[in-house]
């Protein structure tokens, strides 16, 4: 027995591969099914009548197209602005947390930044609604934008701070030794090195804003809709084929953005 090969491979357990595959099936089956049925020619969501782009056409020119166009535009504008502000704030905060020495309020600052991740989303939604009510801020697009900006900060912060921790400060030190100002070291050395982290932080914040339903549903004014609240309203009356077409498009946007984020954050420009 001594020195001989072990009786079995200690690392692998039977059944773990099938469970992993089952896991992937559960994760992807609903998305695939909806994607396939969004191309259904039938008016019914139950019967399959062959491939067609009819419901995609319906989304853009059909009776409900105006509503969805406005909602999509709102979602898009809010996501762009909220993600840009959140990414900028998160980049500065990460620099302050990771590149500005130890300080007393560091733990507290970190707690504040991760607060939206710890508080259940519905509680954040209630609290934000109450806040706007207490200061008599009229509900509308602006309230959605403000709420999204705050909520997106931790999502932007995580990849950005992870990236910054991976960059040695010798590059900036070298610049400072060659008489660069600190501002120059920051903008000309650190920021370009940070680019992959910043881009992936921005993309994640963008998706989080684009996808948010609960907070938006609480703080939006009457008649103001984003894509998720418009979809939710429509789904309450039953799942219709045009909803599946919109869902498939939104799904595609999310997957493309996450994939880009993945490959950008993997690319390493410090070498």
């Amino acid at each position: 027995m001594f020195g001989s090969k072990r009786r079995f491979d200690i690392k692998s357990y039977p059944g773990f591969l099938p469970v992993t595959l089952l896991c992937l099936v559960i994760l992807y089956a609903p998305l695939l099914v909806v994607t396939v049925y969004s191309f259904n020619a039938s008016k019914s969501i139950t019967i399959w009548e062959g491939m067609s782009l009819r419901w995609y056409v319906d989304v853009f020119v059909g009776p409900e197209s105006e509503k969805f166009k406005v909602a999509a535009w709102n979602s898009f504008v809010i996501a762009i602005i909220a993600a840009s502000v959140a990414t900028t704030v998160a980049t500065l905060a990460a620099t302050g947390m990771i590149r500005a020495g130890k300080f007393k309020l560091r733990g507290l600052s970190f707690g504040l930044i991760s607060l939206p991740l710890m508080v259940p989303e519905i509680v954040t939604a209630v609290a934000t609604l109450i806040f706007f009510n207490a200061i008599a801020f009229e509900r509308g697009l602006m309230t959605i934008l403000l709420a999204h900006t705050a909520f997106c900060i931790p999502f932007a912060y995580l990849p950005i701070s992870a990236r910054m921790q991976g960059i040695e400060d010798s590059y900036e030190q070298a610049a400072l030794d060659l008489y660069a100002t600190k501002r120059q070291a920051f903008t000309k050395i650190l920021l370009p090195l940070m680019a992959p982290g910043i881009i992936s932080g921005f993309l994640l914040a963008f998706i989080v804003s684009l996808d948010d339903f609960i907070i938006t549903n609480f703080v939006k004014g009457a008649g103001v809709e984003t894509l998720p609240t418009a979809i939710f309203g429509a789904v309450k009356q039953g799942i219709k084929p045009n909803i599946m077409a919109i869902s498939t498009m939104l799904l595609a946007v999310s997957i493309v953005m996450v994939t880009v984020s993945y490959f950008v954050s993997k690319s390493d420009n410090t070498k």
Binding site: V89, A100, I113
Partner: peptide
């Protein structure tokens, strides 16, 4: 952490403090 931007710390962290205190805490 390193402390390259020690002098700017408050200004770097202020936006996140304000936004998260105002809209979360």
């Amino acid at each position: 952490t390193t402390d390259t931007y020690r002098e700017a710390r408050t200004w770097l962290l202020l936006p996140s403090w304000l936004i998260l205190a105002g809209l979360s805490l």
